[in-house]
Nucleic acid binder design. Structure first.
Lengths: 215, 215
DNA sequence: GCGTCTTTACTAACCGGTTGATTAGTAACT
DNA sequence: AGTTACTAATCAACCGGTTAGTAAAGACGC
């Protein structure tokens, strides 16, 4: 799978070698791959897998389709690389704090506001890759570690035990994405009321998680 | 727009006239439209707008592409008709009960389990039609009425006022869809724990909303 | 330092299947 | 006869994927 190949390459390659190869402008494999990944991230976030266009990605990256198929094998391979890279950048960006889940949810909310393509990519993945077999180990490991952290806090009495640890974590993650997962018809209803400001929206997420934890 | 046209036609047409036209088997416009809409609902729910294939829809409906373009104008027009019909079937299927929002959320959860395509269609709509202009009046009206019901219950002291009415409604709706909006990596974490049974999952939704309302 | 050889990054043009959409025409009912 | 429901065949554009070929950068002998 091209995802594995990409990761191995980046991991094995010496930084100096990569740097020495990047001297001449306009002929840098790593830079080209980066541009293709960036362009593909925007394209897939906007249009999904089926709706994303390989030609647009190549053009926006100031490259061409053959490079995409050389580096990533296929359109699906390119999406795999995009999604895998996004997950690696995301899972550790907001470390969990089991002793202050409301703030944790607030920080997750912040990260979604700051990087809106994350939730869109995850949603496309959910819809277009459901039941598609291979789950990402990096995400599974991260989730397992978070569940463990919640479970320990529950056993120590620092968190309520009303929900099993995995469920509690899921509810927190789900509430964190509250403001970026509703249909436009709902946004229209809420936009001309209170909770229109960004600060207020963050407060809603924090308060909702806090309410979830109240004994 | 074909959506409006469809609604007007169905609204104006006399039931007896429609029935008299449906005598001969194999040549019934309403039945053909129904089969096309049903097939299109399955297709779009599974693959989205960009991923959905008009040929597959025509074949599955035992019809042909020309009929689709005759009745619905375009692929997008067909999706509009599908989404509009789904919304009409859905908005009133689960009437809101401001005095028992946890049970309301439970019933919404039930409806999502029973008709999984509803959330998928809504998510495709959210992703592929974001900022696409025309919001559905039927959904806007339904939302506004629900917000009003929540607001009245709050003013009467039967609901906490921690959240504005529109926000509280949004949180309830959002929590109702908890189990059908997560990426497969999360499902994998929770599937081999407790909360694996359908009854337990419903309980989680009800309990989460109840926690939200606790003073 | 110089010429050439090989490898690597890149490009443009193209291919074949697919897809949304059209059209001309047939069969059935009034 | 006229209208309506339907069908088969076809089209032009599109799109994922391929291929043949170019040019730049390092390797190596001298």
């Amino acid at each position: 799978m091209s995802t594995v190949w990409l990761v191995d390459t980046l991991g094995v390659m010496n930084r100096d070698v990569a740097a020495s190869k990047a001297i001449a402008m306009g002929r840098d494999a790593e830079a080209t791959k980066r541009r293709l990944l960036d362009a593909a991230t925007r394209e897939f976030a906007a249009y999904g897998i089926a709706g994303g266009r390989v030609d647009r990605i190549a053009a926006e990256a100031r490259s061409n389709k053959a490079q995409i198929y050389h580096y990533f094998g296929s359109k699906d391979g390119l999406f795999d690389a995009v999604f895998d890279a996004m997950c690696r950048e995301t899972v550790d960006a907001v470390p969990i704090d089991p002793d202050d889940l409301p703030e944790y949810a607030g920080r997750l909310h912040d990260s979604y506001v700051e990087r809106p393509w994350v939730q869109r990519l995850a949603t496309w993945y959910h819809l277009e890759r459901a039941g598609g077999g291979a789950l990402l180990p990096v995400v599974l490991d991260s989730n397992a570690a978070k569940v463990r952290a919640v479970a320990e806090a529950q056993e120590a009495g620092r968190l309520p035990t009303r929900f099993p640890p995995a469920v509690l974590l899921g509810l927190v993650l789900h509430l964190s994405g509250f403001w970026s997962s509703n249909v436009p018809e709902y946004d229209a209803v809420v936009s001309d009321g209170s909770a229109a400001s960004a600060a207020h929206r963050r407060e809603v997420v924090v308060a909702a998680v806090a309410a979830l934890l109240r004994p």
